[in-house]
């Protein structure tokens, strides 16, 4: 196989990894500099190395990210096998062995777990939904949209509104997570985590309450980046990240 083809495949893998988020921070694992290496061999086998800000980062999130990385990369049609390896972590051996054997979290941790990661994954997808929704609502309120019209705004009408560049980014981030709370075919643009409509009278209080989620995530992200930077050299650029345009749309909740 030609070197250029391998390099292209490597870039495809990086592009897929870009779509995987840290569930807690709601940011891409590549932007966070968690992924340290991507190797593709001539037999179309992929090896991904990653690291986390501390030796103690929670086992569930560590496993989730590894599992999501594997799933995201397996979507590339040419990939025959994916190996994901976590380095310098309290559960590195256990997690790496579990991943290598294709075990679930419950199978990997046995008595230390009482189920798989569906619940924790959903909790954090909902937080991501709240955070993204609050940011978009705040943006629209700031732009002069009235609460009465926002709570009844339909999804198709939302996507037809005129947005500046910042607003368009907020919109696309919100739409990526809207399905976490919205039933299929839900006509309203904005619903709460239960899928219920919002109320005009309490909309600003609602947005204010969700602000807690946003502040928390921002704070954690700053802390995690700082700790990672102290622990590892995060300045040296790794392999070029992307060749293709980003695809942020394909990850569905478990």
């Amino acid at each position: 196989m030609q070197a250029s083809m391998l390099a292209d495949r490597q870039a495809q893998v990086w592009a897929r990894l870009q779509t995987v988020t840290d569930p807690e921070l709601d940011e891409s694992v590549t932007d966070l500099k968690f992924v340290t290496e991507v190797e593709v061999d001539a037999d179309a086998r992929v090896r991904i190395g990653f690291r986390l800000p501390t030796y103690w980062c929670a086992a569930n999130f560590s496993f989730l990210m590894a599992d999501d990385m594997r799933a995201a990369v397996l979507e590339l049609p040419w990939v025959r096998a994916v190996e994901v390896v976590l380095g310098e972590h309290m559960y590195a051996d256990k997690i790496n062995a579990g991943l290598a054997e294709g075990l679930s979290f419950q199978q990997t941790f046995g008595d230390e777990a009482d189920g798989d990661l569906g619940e924790v994954r959903r909790t954090f997808l909902l937080k991501a939904f709240q955070r993204r929704q609050a940011a978009l609502l705040a943006h629209l309120l700031e732009a002069g949209h009235r609460p009465e019209s926002l709570v009844t705004l339909r999804l198709d009408a939302l996507t037809r509104l005129n947005f500046d560049e910042a607003g368009a980014a907020l919109l696309s981030r919100y739409l990526e997570r809207r399905d976490v709370a919205a039933q299929a075919g839900e006509p309203l643009a904005f619903i709460d985590t239960e899928g219920a409509p919002l109320q005009a009278e309490t909309l600003s209080t609602y947005v204010r309450a969700l602000r807690r989620v946003d502040v928390n995530a921002e704070f954690n992200s700053a802390l995690c980046r700082g700790l990672l930077h102290v622990r590892f050299d995060t300045e040296t650029p790794l392999t070029p990240r992307r060749a293709a345009p980003l695809d942020q749309t394909s990850r569905a909740p478990a």
Binding site: T54, A58, A59, N60, E112, A113, D114, L117, E119, V120
Partner: peptide, 13 residues
């Protein structure tokens, strides 16, 4: 609260 608590699949924090 620290990072590891039982069961590990739940949010330890």
């Amino acid at each position: 609260k620290g990072p590891t608590i039982i069961p590990l699949n739940k949010d330890s924090f």
